[in-house]
Amino acid sequence: MLAEIGRHLMAQLKPVTVRLPAELAAQAARAWARDEEEPAGPETVEQAVVRSFAATLALIGMAVGQDRGAEEDVVVTLGPQQVAGCVFAAEHVEERWSDHGDGG
């Protein structure tokens, strides 16, 4: 059902222009430039989530390469999927840190 809601929302959402710190933008651009040496084989759910995060990072890196930067920040236009992926990753990392009692 969540995917069904997502399909309806995606049709309503437009890309958004955001500012990223230059270092984060540079790291994303490097992720886009990286070559994958081996195709993905069978994977666990956790591995699939990590791969999805890596793909989102690489797509942001591609967008960074296409958009213009400011002095300290890079201005980039992201689609709703990339924004959602970033938010989901942030929540996932926060949950993992708080589950281990390490703070965040």
Rank of each mutant, 00 (worst) to 15 (best):
L2C: 12
L2T: 15
A3M: 14
E4F: 11
E4L: 12
G6A: 04
H8M: 06
A11G: 15
Q12G: 04
Q12S: 07
L13I: 06
L13P: 11
K14C: 03
K14R: 15
T17Y: 00
T17W: 02
L20K: 03
L20T: 02
P21Y: 15
P21E: 15
A26H: 02
A29I: 13
A29R: 05
A31H: 02
A31D: 04
W32M: 03
A33R: 15
R34L: 05
R34C: 04
R34K: 05
R34N: 05
D35A: 13
E36D: 09
E38N: 04
P39W: 05
G41W: 07
G41V: 05
P42F: 03
Q47K: 00
V49S: 00
V49I: 13
V49W: 01
V50M: 03
V50A: 01
F53K: 00
F53Y: 02
A54W: 00
A54K: 00
A55K: 02
T56H: 13
T56L: 01
L57D: 14
A58I: 00
A58N: 06
L59F: 05
L59M: 10
G61S: 10
M62F: 08
V64P: 14
V64N: 14
R68K: 13
G69H: 14
G69N: 14
E71G: 11
E72P: 10
E72R: 01
V74D: 08
V76Y: 00
V76T: 14
T77F: 08
L78S: 09
P80H: 07
P80F: 14
Q81K: 14
Q82S: 06
V83E: 00
V87Y: 13
A89R: 02
A90Q: 06
E91C: 11
E91Y: 13
E94K: 07
E95P: 08
S98F: 10
D99K: 03
H100L: 12
G101E: 05
D102I: 06
G103D: 13
G103S: 09
